[in-house]
């Protein structure tokens, strides 16, 4: 349970980040740039010194609900230290796909799947795999902020440790570190004993991010994490994502194409034409938004449908 960064260095980073954000907010009066230019002008992220794990790889993943084939033959390699956005219209299987990546898919009683998901080179669906260990390494942030209502803010951050019965040497430091990394520390440092429900929606979602960071996952899955939030909170969480991506693998489902262009290095476009959802195109985000190879991708990212 040791992190590469110390709370002090993170605190400095936090201040820098907030300064940058205020600057960005003051510039927001200018006309919005096109998606392609947003995707291309994005500053390339420095590779973090310490990356957790070697990434996640899906090989020929199919998914069913009962007899309904909802996802067909998805193969993607999510490299460590990158952010991958999954875009596509509703019902194309994006959420189902990311739920196969941490074995949450199997909680739906009629669910079935085929294919392999390799986490650091090992198939998470191999017989004898401990599911709870997989979910510790592949964290998840949900669409709706869902802090545990019976716990305080501090307890929420440590909930993962308690749930998985892990030992932690210094809980206070861990709480501070996770909240700093999630960009919430300054707002809640004096009220760690309050209940999570007292926070605003955006703060709750960052608390949920902090909660998933406490068990130091290698991969973070985010299922439309900003769809219930206001633009300010969204920006804040996007900054958090960029920071986190230095050390881990992030996969984010989003309906907001501006967001995909802003935060992701790679983009996968999913589509279902009545049948099972398929991955139409996968590539660098700058390519997908400026020069898509598939006509359907072009139609979607230019807003001609969807």
């Amino acid at each position: 349970m040791t992190m590469s960064t110390t709370p002090e260095s993170l605190s400095a980073k936090q201040k820098e980040l907030e300064k940058k954000m205020t600057e960005e907010r003051s510039q927001s009066h200018t006309a919005p740039a096109s998606l392609a230019s947003v995707a291309q002008t994005k500053v390339s992220r420095p590779a973090g010194a310490k990356r957790l794990g070697t990434g996640l790889e899906a090989r020929g993943v199919h998914a069913w609900f009962g007899k309904n084939h909802v996802l067909s033959d998805i193969s993607v390699d999510f490299a460590s230290g990158t952010v991958t956005a999954l875009i596509g219209p509703s019902g194309c299987g994006k959420s189902t796909f990311i739920r196969t990546l941490n074995r949450m898919h199997e909680f739906i009683p009629t669910a079935a799947m085929a294919g392999e998901v390799l986490l650091d080179g090992k198939d998470i669906y191999a017989p004898g795999t401990d599911v709870t260990k997989i979910r510790l390494k592949v964290g998840m942030v949900f669409q709706k902020p869902n802090p545990f209502p019976s716990m305080t803010i501090g307890e929420n951050v440590l909930a993962g440790l308690r749930l998985a019965q892990l030992k932690s040497t210094n809980k206070d430091d861990l709480v501070e570190e996770c909240l700093i990394r999630a960009g919430l520390w300054n707002e809640v440092k004096d009220r760690l004993d309050e209940h999570g429900g007292a926070l605003s929606g955006g703060q709750q979602q960052r608390l949920c991010i902090a909660r998933s960071l406490a068990v130091s996952p290698h991969v973070l899955l985010m299922d439309e994490p900003c769809s219930a939030l206001d633009p300010g909170s969204t920006l804040r969480i996007e900054e958090t994502i960029s920071e986190l991506a230095e050390s881990m693998t992030i996969i984010i489902v989003t309906h907001n194409m501006q967001q995909a262009a802003r935060v992701s290095d790679y983009t996968a476009f999913f589509l279902s034409d009545g049948g099972p959802g398929e991955m139409v195109e996968y590539g660098k985000t700058s390519e997908i938004f400026s020069n898509p190879k598939d006509k359907r991708t072009e139609n979607y990212v230019t807003g001609r449908f969807g």
Partner: peptide
């Protein structure tokens, strides 16, 4: 809400731990 159960499980809790620590206290 089902969200809370899923959140508990996604954090690496077993079903028993999730029920005892998250669902029943809520």
């Amino acid at each position: 809400p089902e969200d809370l159960r899923e959140a508990g499980l996604a954090l690496g809790g077993t079903q028993w731990r999730t029920v005892a620590m998250v669902v029943v206290p809520a």
